[in-house]
């Protein structure tokens, strides 16, 4: 197997989230490929470093946390119990004001709350950058990932069986993906035909 085919599987192998058949292929590749072996070593080294640091951190700092005593917190519980009704009232009042403001704003200013219905163009064609990327959009791009099983990618001629290529193949896709993943990122436009071709090659019928 070539490096291009192995690279996407390396992380799954590192996570022990890979089938037996692929493990054999991967191991035989790693015996001969220094670059892939190095990348895997980097994953393992980081993992060991972080685990070592965690145990040292717990030993060093956890006594700080041990100073939290339940009996001291009990006093706080009592105060909180007494204040709870006031907090609830204040929260209720705030909610009423918010709803009233929202009602007035939407009915008397002509501004419409954007629809939650997912639109492809909303995610990948930034107009002025002012669209709301809502939770449904995120959910749908997550569904796209779920649909992309290893088998689908391996069978896809366009993607050449490379999971990583999904991440990297089109620099325009990554910002969309990364925006979903939570980075503050300016979307770069992706043409409709490009995206349709990607979906077709993934046998992905629909986004919604």
């Amino acid at each position: 197997m070539s490096c291009e085919k192995i690279k996407p599987l390396l992380f799954d192998y590192f996570e022990k989230n890979i089938s037996e058949g692929r493990v054999r292929n991967l191991k035989s590749h790693l015996e001969t490929c220094r670059f892939c072996a190095e990348e895997l070593t980097e994953f393992e080294n980081l993992s060991q470093l972080l685990k070592k640091e965690t145990s040292e951190l717990i030993n060093k700092h956890f006594f700080y946390f041990e100073n939290l005593r339940l009996n001291n917190s009990n006093k706080l519980f009592e105060v909180r119990k007494q204040m709870a009704p006031i907090f609830r009232f204040a929260a209720g009042l705030a909610l009423v004001f918010y709803l009233a403001a929202l009602f007035l704003f939407t009915n008397f200013t002509g501004w419409n709350i954007p629809s939650n219905e997912f639109q492809t163009s909303q995610l990948i064609y930034p107009n002025s950058g002012s669209e709301l990327i809502n939770d449904n959009s995120y959910e749908n791009i997550g569904k796209l990932y779920d649909q992309i099983s290893d088998e689908t990618i391996m069978q896809s001629d366009y993607l050449n069986g490379e999971y990583e290529m999904l991440m990297q193949m089109n620099s325009k896709l990554i910002p969309s993906v990364e925006n979903y993943l939570g980075r503050d990122y300016n979307l770069i436009g992706l043409s409709e035909s490009d995206f349709d071709q990607i979906l077709k090659s993934l046998n992905y019928k629909e986004i919604i």
Binding site: Y138, I141, G142, K143, Y145, D146, Q147, V177, G182
Partner: peptide, 9 residues
Amino acid sequence: TSVGALKAN
């Protein structure tokens, strides 16, 4: 969040 998205994350 979906499992697929979590893996990517």
